[in-house]
Amino acid sequence: MSIQHFRVALIPFFAAFCLPVFAHPETLVKVKDAEDQLGARVGYIELDLNSGKILESFRPEERFPMMSTFKVLLCGAVLSRVDAGQEQLGRRIHYSQNDLVEYSPVTEKHLTDGMTVRELCSAAITMSDNTAANLLLTTIGGPKELTAFLHNMGDHVTRLDRWEPELNEAIPNDERDTTMPAAMATTLRKLLTGELLTLASRQQLIDWMEADKVAGPLLRSALPAGWFIADKSGAGERGSRGIIAALGPDGKPSRIVVIYTTGSQATMDERNRQIAEIGASLIKHW
């Protein structure tokens, strides 16, 4: 067993022997301040990774656009098919120029040779490549099948209805392509620590998230040296922004954090800054 596999296998073990965790309302004060600064709703939840206990939450059962955070769930569904012998990570998928959609920095470079399922998941999570996500959605049967996968996990809230990039439209009061912070946090925890996926697939999923290259201005910008984070960000229309993450000190994750916002007129930089400040408060009061 590799060191990384050992780390993920012992996530519940280490967490069980940690000192009790206590909620700190100071972080919620910052979440509410972010709402004021952005002029928009902000949803927040913080779960203990081992027990699933909610440590703090704000608007945990209000719907927010998922945006690209759905790509972690998508690759979880792909990995479940791999575990069941219905898919192979090494299978190569070929596609054409007509398949390319807006923001496809990886797939646009491989029109000639195609990409493997493993490479597509890596591109979808680490670079948020939209064509990679659409190609992977095709392998599982489309958005409705991802929703069905989530329902089978016990998540009857999260739903995907459309493809990239239309799913980022974020129309107010439109339930399409949305989740709730509580539902997303619980589902992410199941994917990373539950028995739904094999140990190898859980490790692969967290490795992809740990290698995320496009979430630097968010929670990662607030992390002290030595902290662990595996995350996936999302951005959408109407001032929408979000991030889902597993993080913790001492090089291992111990909490799940989900943050979503929508309806702001603020710039992307300002949305990023507010999420980073929430992260800084979380870490300060850990």
Score class of each variant (00 low, 15 high):
Ile275Ala: 02
Ser281Met: 11
Gly154Ala: 07
Ser80Pro: 01
Ser80Leu: 11
Asp129Met: 00
Cys121Gln: 02
Leu136His: 01
His156Glu: 12
Thr187Trp: 04
Val214Ile: 07
Gln88Trp: 12
Ala245Val: 05
Gln203Leu: 12
Gly251Ala: 12
Thr112Glu: 15
Gln37Cys: 11
Val8Trp: 08
Ser122Leu: 15
Glu145Thr: 11
His5Tyr: 12
Leu282Tyr: 03
Ser221Lys: 13
Leu135Pro: 00
Leu47Cys: 09
Thr27Ser: 07
Thr112Asn: 13
Arg7Val: 08
Thr178Lys: 02
Asp129Ser: 01
His94Asp: 11
Glu62His: 08
Ala34Lys: 04
Ala148His: 13
Arg59Ile: 02
Gly154Gln: 09
Asp161Ile: 04
Leu47Ile: 15
Gln203Met: 14
Val214Ser: 07
Phe70Val: 10
Ile244Cys: 09
Ser221Gln: 13
Trp163Pro: 10
Arg202Phe: 03
Phe22Gly: 11
Pro172Asp: 13
Ile45Asp: 02
Met115Lys: 03
Thr139Asn: 10
Asn152Val: 10
Leu192Val: 10
Gly242Val: 01
Leu55Arg: 09
Glu237Tyr: 12
Ser122Phe: 13
Gln37Gly: 10
Thr193Pro: 01
Val117Thr: 07
Val258Tyr: 01
Arg59His: 09
Phe149Glu: 07
His5Gln: 12
Thr158Pro: 00
Thr131Phe: 05
Glu62Thr: 11
Lys144Met: 12
Val78Leu: 07
Ala170Asn: 09
Leu49Gly: 05
Phe64Val: 04
Ile125Cys: 09
Val42Phe: 14
Leu191Gln: 04
Leu79Asn: 02
Asn168Gly: 11
Asp99Leu: 09
Val29Pro: 04
Ile3Tyr: 13
Leu146Ile: 08
Tyr103Glu: 03
Lys232Pro: 00
Arg92Tyr: 10
Gly242Asp: 01
Arg92Leu: 12
Arg241Met: 04
Leu49Phe: 14
Ala124Gly: 07
Leu74Thr: 06
Thr27Ile: 09
Val157Asp: 15
Pro105Glu: 06
Gly248Asn: 03
Phe22Gln: 12
Leu74Pro: 01
Phe17Lys: 07
Ile278Gly: 00
His151Gln: 13
Ser57Thr: 11
Lys213Arg: 13
Ile54Trp: 08
Ile125Ala: 04
Ser201Thr: 08
Ala235Gly: 11
Val21Pro: 05
Gly242Met: 02
Ala183His: 12
Arg41Val: 09
Pro12Glu: 06
Arg81Ala: 10
Ile256Glu: 02
Ser51Tyr: 08
Asp269Gln: 12
Asn130Glu: 01
Leu247Asp: 00
Glu56Asn: 11
Ala183Lys: 08
Arg238Phe: 14
Ala246Cys: 12
Val78Pro: 00
Arg202Gln: 15
Ile171Trp: 14
Asn50Phe: 12
Ala133Pro: 02
